[in-house]
């Protein structure tokens, strides 16, 4: 706006200016108005013309002055006094801006104060603001990332907080069932080293404290037996003990007392005869048991009336 460039043109230096902008025109008008106002004030102080004359002068002067000012602006700018007028107008405009802002602040504060007294802002927000949309628009992750949680935690006096917390009341108000239902017990168990836990348990001490008799008294043996496949169990036992052989051996003539007596007598006679023969042959008592390897000591039969 002001002198920006100097060009060598012929013999003398000519100062060129940028074209006028609306702000420059406004500054110029303000400057001229202020000058004119000062002149008018001084003139009015000296001469107080009648009201009619001033009105007529005003009507006659306003129109031509406007046209003349715009037409003469470029030419007037080239003069030094016009620059003074321009600076004066600019400073006046800044002053006016500042005052206007100050007044606007005071007025706005007062207006807002009154408006807030009249209007419940909370209700207004609730009624007219789509809070969901606002929340959706907020990038909470990013906001959280910017929070230095460590610093926050460092500033927290956990001890003081805990002293003020009534844990009993908190626990009483907590819905533990719901919380437990959300716990993935399986995942927790996978992370637990059961072997280590068991190794640290003194099972002997636990067993010493357990009343086995009381537990046994509480057992529902009937229910246990009802779950057993007794038929399969009986078949397993019968297969192991050769029940047909037992029945055959314990019934009929083969199990009679007289037959046993005959067999006993036969066995006794065998042993006696063998004993006599062994003594006659001057050898140690025979071992009529199974043929054993020489390394194994045979078991001698026990004959009644003899010392082994």
């Amino acid at each position: 706006m002001e002198s920006t460039a100097a060009h060598e043109d012929g013999g003398g230096a000519v100062t060129r200016y940028d074209p006028l902008t609306p702000a420059d025109v406004a500054d110029l008008v303000l400057g001229l108005a202020s000058v004119g106002a000062e002149v008018a004030v001084r003139a009015a102080e000296r001469v107080r013309p009648p009201a009619l004359v001033t009105r007529a002068l005003a009507g006659l002067v306003t129109g031509p002055v406007t046209a003349t000012v715009s037409r003469l602006a470029d030419r007037a700018l080239q003069a030094d006094w016009s620059q003074d007028v321009l600076r004066s107008g600019r400073s006046r405009r800044r002053d006016l801006n500042r005052r206007t802002l100050e007044v606007a602040r005071r007025v706005a504060a007062a207006v807002v104060e009154v408006a807030l007294d009249l209007v419940d802002v909370t209700d207004v927000v609730i009624d007219h603001v789509d809070l969901d949309a606002v929340v959706r628009a907020v990038d909470l992750d990013r906001a959280v990332e910017r929070v230095d949680v460590d610093a926050v935690v460092r500033r927290v006096d956990v001890g003081a907080i805990l002293e003020r917390v009534d844990v009993d009341e908190v626990v009483a108000r907590a819905d533990l069932d719901r919380a437990v239902a959300r716990v993935d017990v399986g995942a927790i168990l996978e992370r637990v080293d059961v072997d280590e836990v068991v190794a640290r348990v003194d099972v002997g001490a636990i067993i010493d404290r357990v009343d086995i008799d009381a537990i046994a008294a509480r057992l529902d043996l009937d229910a246990v037996v009802a779950r057993l496949d007794l038929v399969a169990l009986a078949e397993y036992v019968v297969e192991g003990i050769d029940l047909p052989g037992i029945i055959q051996s314990s019934s009929g003539a083969m199990a009679s007392e007289s037959l046993r007596e005959v067999r006993w007598q036969g066995v006794s006679a065998d042993e006696r005869v063998a004993h006599v023969v062994d003594r006659m042959l001057h050898r140690r008592p025979r071992t009529p048991g199974p043929a054993l390897p020489s390394a194994e000591a045979p078991v001698r039969p026990v004959i009644p009336g003899t010392t082994v």
């Binding site: 006993w264 199974p290 054993l292 004959i303 009644p304």
Partner: peptide, 12 residues
């Protein structure tokens, strides 16, 4: 093939 238990005969 194993050694049986010792014989215990009935007393006379």
């Amino acid at each position: 093939t194993t050694a049986p238990a010792p014989m215990v005969l009935p007393p006379d």
